[in-house]
Design a protein around this nucleic acid. Structure first.
Lengths: 191, 191
DNA sequence: AATTAAATCGGACGTTTGACCTAATCTGTG
DNA sequence: CACAGATTAGGTCAAACGTCCGATTTAATT
């Protein structure tokens, strides 16, 4: 299960089913009917609760964002020094790719969607913004130098996010999470 | 235009139109009819030359791979030292994102496709393998140390590719190629 | 018991899709 | 000219899609 299930109301079951479907078969290959069947619910219930397809998936994106932001902040504030925090971040990401790759697949699918749909673009921008701010705050802020080796903390945070995203998709492509050990090298940035 | 047009045969026009459509409207939002119209060709011609949708897009992927590999190798062998070559690679990538973002969008779309389709997965794996080999060969091979700072050249090449891919998608999402200046920081890896 | 609102259901609607297919026309080469 | 390959025109087909609607059931309120 990608998300922990607190409530067992009908809307929650549908949201769970939707994220499950997308993350295992891909957004393009999933229909409203598939989701309804997965949720054990009749098709029209999806429109009843979420109006339309876009409305449904907007909610799924929000769930995904919450989970990412919560877990990553948790990983970051577990340590004290910038270097340890990067290590913790990388460790979280690698674990996630290993134990819950569906969560990353969800991110990739919706990011792809965001390229073409203004609605999802706004949502995904918020996610990346929040992640960037978090990395700046926890890793790069109280660093002795405002600029590390001549690069702004904004640039460095974007590079760290990009590294995780880019190695993540490679790991997915090869079904080989070992590949993400490449991420350990990102610590060099803080040497 | 994404690709330079040498021949003006019917198959080439179709391939061009296909890549144009996908890179401007997204794979999910493009039909065979759209491509035919864009190419100024009748629908049945698409099946005549490429059998089916998958066959057509396989060829588009091959075109894309060729272009990436050719251009990147060109950028790499323009310089001599590892550090200069990384700089050249980053410079190429940023230019591409600025002047030909469609090419990157193509890469993103097909990578997303590759997650779910074995056919495209094989193709994309080859692309990433070739890129990785190229970076190892031109940047990390003749480096004085077999392992740089304890990391294998395989890991480092995957990290470099991942950084480019991951910052590229962010730049796309924000319509802001300035964001890719973050990539300059990747040179720190070779300090 | 009567009334109202929410929830659930089954089915239909109109559209689009990829894949075929046939017949007619064009084009260049032998 | 004749012929074969290329191209166009148009249509058909079954399947899948998102959306919508009327009817029915369930729950809550009066």
């Amino acid at each position: 299960m990608i998300f922990e299930t607190n409530g067992q109301g009908q809307p929650e079951r549908i949201l769970l089913a939707a994220s499950e479907c997308i993350s295992t078969r891909g957004y393009a290959n999933v229909s409203m009917r598939d989701i309804a069947k997965e949720a054990g619910v009749v098709l029209s219930q999806l429109n009843y609760y979420f109006k339309n397809k876009e409305g449904l998936f907007k909610e799924v994106v929000r769930m995904m964002m919450d989970k990412y932001l919560r877990e990553i902040e948790e990983a970051l504030k577990e340590e004290d020094s910038p270097k340890e925090r990067v290590k913790s971040l990388v460790k979280y990401f690698r674990k996630m790719l290993h134990y819950n790759p569906k969560l990353f697949r969800l991110l990739y699918e919706f990011t792809g969607l965001a390229i073409w749909s203004p609605v999802f673009r706004d949502l995904l921008r918020n996610l990346f913004n929040d992640l960037s701010d978090m990395i700046e705050m926890y890793i790069l802020k109280n660093s002795q130098l405002k600029k590390l080796k001549g690069y702004s903390s904004k640039s460095l945070s974007r590079l760290i996010i990009g590294s995780m995203f880019g190695t993540g998709i490679q790991a997915l492509l090869y079904h080989d999470e070992e590949l993400t050990e490449a991420l350990d090298a990102i610590q060099i940035l803080l040497d």
